[in-house]
Design a protein around this nucleic acid. Structure first.
Lengths: 154, 154
DNA sequence: TTATGTGCAAACGCTTTGCGTGAAG
DNA sequence: CTTCACGCAAAGCGTTTGCACATAA
């Protein structure tokens, strides 16, 4: 586990405070979504958040999760990884551009702590005139687990 | 223009030959789509291809363009840039992983010929065990034209 | 008390699919 | 002649929206 549990609790509290300051109400549903997102290292989808929230909030709906997640995105508190023809995945622990490793078999997504992109924006602005705001670096491949399962096919 | 015209014509011919060898039929619609994709440097969407084909093929449909584009993708002849909540964009001139600059105002997409990612896959395999197959590097920002228009707001 | 959030159902946008007709090889 | 492609309409899927009701502050 890369982030200690007490740090996660602290992040939830910070999040609640910051959202309240910005005029957002903290409903039980939202608190549950926040906790789940912060505690979850696996970049969950809205659907997954919804399924895990449901035991505690049986009447909640996908629409509510979507609305909360969009609010968090607009406040810059989560990073959205959108895909064509797949649901978006969310990272609330590192809500800034950073590289990912994505398994094309099981859709596993992990953070890759290797690549430093900091120097590129200036170069790109010089060469192409683009003002760079953020970036996205994804490496697609097969995760170790799927590689193993491919080798013993029974 | 980065790619000379005679090279484009050659690429269309190669494409036709290769597709035929793989058992695909070259219909007039497909030929028109191929030419358009090869001649177009602006990473067009299916919708844009459809609109530009329509004058010559008034009865054609989006479904046909989708099917052709998917066939080309499966044969590795075009690169698909998929986005959540936007239509996919296609590059038939460089059908391999390479970085892009994407304007978040006008959706302009250009190739960025700066970044070399070749050394990263090995590093990532060593560190995370992922077998890397391809990657995607996108820089999001404002293109020069949109920057200028933002400055003179009348 | 009142503005904001919830949750249902309907709508949306892009893409895919089914199927009868048509044409490439 | 046979197989594959076309093109229409319908369906699929993730996401958003409208609105009446509920509730946080």
């Amino acid at each position: 586990m890369q982030i200690p549990n007490h740090n996660r609790a602290a992040r939830v509290n910070e999040l609640v405070t910051r959202l309240r300051e910005k005029g957002h109400r903290i409903t039980p549903q939202r608190l549950a979504i926040l906790k789940l997102l912060v505690e979850n290292e696996s970049h969950p989808s809205v659907e997954q958040v919804y399924e895990q929230i449901r035991p505690d909030f049986p009447t909640t709906s996908l629409a509510t999760v979507y609305k909360t997640v969009n609010m968090l995105k607009e406040e810059g508190e989560i990073l959205e990884l959108g895909f064509a023809n797949h649901s978006s995945r969310y990272d609330s622990n590192r809500p800034y551009s950073h590289p990912h490793l994505i398994c094309i078999h099981c859709q596993d997504i992990i953070d890759a702590e290797v690549i430093e992109m900091a120097e590129f924006p200036d170069t790109l602005t010089e060469k192409y005139g683009y003002q760079i705001l953020n970036h996205r670096v994804d490496f697609y491949g097969i995760c170790p687990k799927c590689q193993m399962e491919a080798q013993k096919p029974e």
